[in-house]
């Protein structure tokens, strides 16, 4: 059985339990549901809110370099810390936080395979106590936008016939979901997908227990199933760039694709962009 391309980036729940008091690591919980941390979290873990902390609150963008420095300093994370992310929904939000940390140049980022669900299923300890960590003086050394695609990159990408992966549900991909009456604000005036994009819903890469599928299975899904290869430039997108960060993680670290970008503008940008080409 093949191994992941970068197996070191994944740690097990056992490993995390053994390292809860390790001063060189900081455990970060990043969830879709903002209350989960409050009702119980892994001891010594700190909470990040993807929406209010990792995004700029005025402009549609990620947290600025300065605010990221202030945020990490406040939470007691230093440049040398290895940050272990875990979260709900098969680590979807953990991958989102991981990707954001990578854009802002944090070096050592890890994911706890299986996320919060696995920790719950294994009956491991949750606490409500919030750790008091000494403040640090965090400095962003480099902003790495090579893993981020903007709309002009996408235009260039489709013009040169390079592959895209749309990780939304089949109904969002086909455009059908936009017509749901109850979601008038959900983002886009046009339905469909970016021309040429393959549809591989993000959760295809996760097992029932929240862990990632095996390397062999992932090769089957992305390489054999979609004809993608490691040397190709790939752009992944969804609706706002959160689900696609999970796929970005899988392609980059588990399969070893060399150049994968997450298009965080995603469908809420593309589906609203005047004259942007769309396929149904």
């Amino acid at each position: 059985m093949a191994d992941y391309a970068s197996p070191d980036v994944l740690v097990s729940t056992d490993w995390v339990e053994e390292h809860i008091d390790d001063p060189d690591i900081v455990i970060v919980e990043s969830d879709e549901d903002i209350l989960l941390y409050e009702i119980g979290h892994i001891r010594n873990s700190v909470k990040f809110d993807w929406q209010t902390e990792l995004q700029d609150q005025l402009i549609r963008d990620y947290v600025s370099r300065e605010n990221f420095e202030a945020l990490l300093s406040e939470k007691g994370i230093s440049n040398d810390h290895a940050v272990v992310f875990y979260g709900d929904r098969s680590n979807w939000w953990a991958c989102y936080a991981f990707w954001t940390f990578k854009v802002l140049g944090h070096e050592k980022c890890l994911i706890m395979d299986g996320g919060r669900q696995k920790w719950v299923d294994e009956g491991r300890e949750f606490v409500k106590e919030v750790p008091q960590r000494p403040k640090t003086d965090y400095k962003v050394s480099v902003v790495d936008e090579s893993i981020r695609a903007f709309r002009d990159d996408v235009v260039e990408h489709i013009n040169s016939g390079r592959p895209l992966v749309d990780v939304r549900s089949p109904k969002e991909y086909s455009g059908e979901l936009l017509h749901m009456e109850a979601y008038p604000q959900e983002g886009a005036l046009r339905g469909g997908h970016i021309p040429g994009a393959a549809n591989v819903p993000w959760a295809t890469a996760a097992n029932e227990d929240g862990t990632f599928r095996s390397a062999d299975e992932l090769v089957e899904i992305y390489e054999k199933g979609q004809g993608l290869s490691k040397d190709q430039d790939v752009i992944a997108y969804c609706r706002i760039g959160e689900r696609s960060s999970h796929t970005w993680f899988v392609l980059t670290y588990l399969l070893g694709f060399e150049n994968v970008k997450n298009y965080d503008g995603s469908w809420t940008e593309w589906g609203n962009l005047v004259r942007a080409p769309i396929e149904k």
Binding site: D33, L35, L36
Partner: peptide, 8 residues
């Protein structure tokens, strides 16, 4: 239970 915000 795993959706405490929605429960709230």
């Amino acid at each position: 239970g795993p959706y405490p915000t929605v429960r709230g």
